[in-house]
């Protein structure tokens, strides 16, 4: 596939329409709209239960591609079945693409994901990570960052930090499955779609994790979806990198990260995070960034 150089190269054809019941300014919706530009109509999106499950609402769908919603914990295994079913029917050209949230990916569906990756199934797995169980109203998952408040990790007298667990390093985990693993951002669509394009060409499993800014859960003005997504990359909360054959490649390098404060201040979920919590979070970010810088261009997993 010809790599896109700028926004102007991105195809003007959409396989996604309006009319869904997702929130105004929904990051994950935008992610799927963009992805379908590269994937095209001969694609089956395998969805796990979550916000995106509400894209189609009988009898209407915004999708001009196919869609299977099975349950929450089984998108990867459903995709494996669809892939092999198509292959056995001689239909090798159809793309099989998972579009699953972080709860379905990091937590309840992890066994299914891990097996499909270990078996190197010819699937593209996109995790739209809104760092919570979003559709149920913003509860904690193992993708929720340290210091974020959620409905099940509220701040209180006993626990002013909110989320005290440090989120899983999912990319490293997936990289260790010897598959292609990459992060992506809505604010860098060229990077995202080029990664997707490369994944589409691959004869095996690809894992792309898209930070799915969530206006309702993160609690910000919907107009800021792209601004926040960009800031997440600039402050090192969401570095853009990829792991292939165990080698790390940092896609967006910065001589200096922006301090995390600006990112936190834009969102209600970090409101009232005590200074020592902010400090700890900044420490975690710095540590991860230093690790990425150290291993950039080298064997990482």
């Amino acid at each position: 596939m010809q790599e896109f150089k700028s926004l102007k190269d991105i195809p003007e054809q959409d396989y996604f329409t309006g009319g869904s019941s997702t929130c105004a300014g929904c990051g994950p919706s935008l992610g799927l709209k963009l992805a379908l530009k590269v994937l095209g109509p001969e694609t089956i999106i395998i969805n796990s239960a979550g916000c995106m499950t509400l894209l189609p609402l009988y009898p209407n769908t915004p999708l001009k591609a196919s869609w299977i919603h099975n349950a929450i914990e089984n998108a990867a295994s459903t995709a494996a079945g669809a892939r092999h079913g198509l292959d056995m029917l001689g239909d090798k050209d159809m793309n099989v693409v998972v579009y699953a949230g972080d709860g379905a990916t990091y937590d309840i569906g992890f066994a299914s994901l891990s097996a499909a990756a270990a078996k190197n199934e010819r699937i593209i797995y996109i995790c739209y990570n809104n760092q919570s169980y979003g559709n149920t109203g913003f509860q904690w998952s193992t993708a929720t960052p340290y210091g974020s408040e959620t409905k099940t990790t509220p701040r209180g007298k006993e626990n002013p930090t909110g989320t005290t667990v440090v989120n899983k390093d999912m990319l490293k985990i997936m990289g260790a499955h010897r598959v292609y693993a990459a992060t992506a951002s809505l604010a860098y669509p060229v990077d995202f779609l080029n990664k997707l394009g490369r994944a589409k060409e691959r004869d095996g499993f690809s894992y792309i994790e898209l930070l799915g800014a969530c206006t309702a859960g993160w609690n910000y003005d919907p107009r800021l979806t792209i601004k926040i997504s960009k800031l997440a990359v600039r402050c090192g909360m969401w570095p853009l990198y990829e792991i292939e054959h165990g080698m790390l490649n940092l896609n967006k390098d910065f001589s200096e990260l922006k301090p995390v404060d600006e990112f936190l201040n834009m969102q209600g979920r970090y409101r009232a995070l005590p200074p020592n919590g902010v400090e700890r979070l900044q420490g975690l970010i710095n540590e991860h960034w230093a690790e990425l810088k150290e291993y950039n261009g080298q064997r990482y997993v």
Partner: peptide, 9 residues
Amino acid sequence: SAAVGAAAV
């Protein structure tokens, strides 16, 4: 789950 995926195609 895989059976559902394969049967759905």
